[in-house]
Design a protein around this nucleic acid. Sequence first.
DNA 1: GCCAACGTTGGC
DNA 2: GCCAACGTTGGC
Length: 162
Amino acid sequence: MACWLLKSEPDVFGYPDLVRAGREAWNGVRNYQARNFLREMQEGDLCLFYHSNARPSGVAGVARVVRAAYPDDLQFDPASPYHDPRSDPAAPRWSMVDVEAVTALPRLVPLETLRALPEWQDSPLVRKGTRLSVLPVTPEQFRAAVAAGGGVPGTALSLNPT
DNA sequence: GCCAACGTTGGC
DNA sequence: GCCAACGTTGGC
């Protein structure tokens, strides 16, 4: 099983919104590198749900991939800000996955905390200038983040992502 | 709101 | 294929 990090602006769609929705299509990703990661995701993969552009920014919860990549519907919707008139319906340019809420972390893990974790030193997330909205994390990074957020062994928070 | 960093676009 | 201009991201 692989692990990922998904960024979302909580003012637009935060972890509580995912909890409310239960399940959500992760659409609107319009960056090729991020899209390629979406396409690698498998059903059952776990994701850290990261609040960006927040005070503070950080990991708010855990989500799970419940449907592997399929064409992003918004690319063909002229009314959507994510509409891409150059995307060919026969070979859609953009993909999305479906995710569901697993659990909120007892404590948000601020970016500053992630920066201080040894496991996270090599992550693109903590590198200056990285704007990827979907990125892979190692099982060690996943566990360290969950632990920093107060994840408790024996619960869903200790899911062993290996 | 500022601004650094980066990706994309389009003229040539 | 180069590269300047532009738009966007996202921390602060």
